[in-house]
Design a protein around this nucleic acid. Sequence first.
DNA 1: AGGATGATGGACT
DNA 2: GTCCATCATCCTA
Length: 190
Amino acid sequence: MTRTITSLQQALAGPPEEAAPLLLGNILVSTIGDEVVRMRITEVEAYKGAEDPASHAYRGRTDRNSSMFERPGTLYCYRSYGIHTCANTATGPVGQGWGVLIRGGEVVEGRGLAERRRGRQEELSNGPGKVCQALGITLDRDGTYLFDPRSAVRLEPGDAPEMVVATPRIGISKAKERPWRFVAVSQVSQ
DNA sequence: AGGATGATGGACT
DNA sequence: GTCCATCATCCTA
């Protein structure tokens, strides 16, 4: 069954550990520069608000994390390690602070602009900071609604991956055991 | 091929 | 002052 905007919105309406794997294979579209960049999402992580010590929303709503408490499909952008920008989409009911971090993707359109932004031709988007840099997403995009056709960053339906692998999340020190990182796998290596 | 490290800012104790 | 939902670069092998 092929995905639609509606099925994507339904997926994001649920809890992040269910929404996250359903996000794989969909397309992030950036119309920020002079060229469109499209990226197929291949790696995500779920963060579940007040019940997840690893979540930025664990201690409740603040100025920084407020976008995660908005309607599902709201972009939450934050500064990581003082240098990088990372991006989530909010999921679940308003006020929960649930989100899915976009950790990786593959550029399927606008590779030239993505390469210029990254300053290299490989490793364009295998990491949350690299994803944002390749798409041109900066902190001022925080709060963007990904389903508004006028938004400079949008989410479009794409084909589900052949297979999804779940692993523990990367780079966290709390709740390490939860298998809430999901990776799209297109081939089984031998 | 893999481990250590510096950059750098905001949130929290 | 310490801790990060990171990344590029610089080591050592």
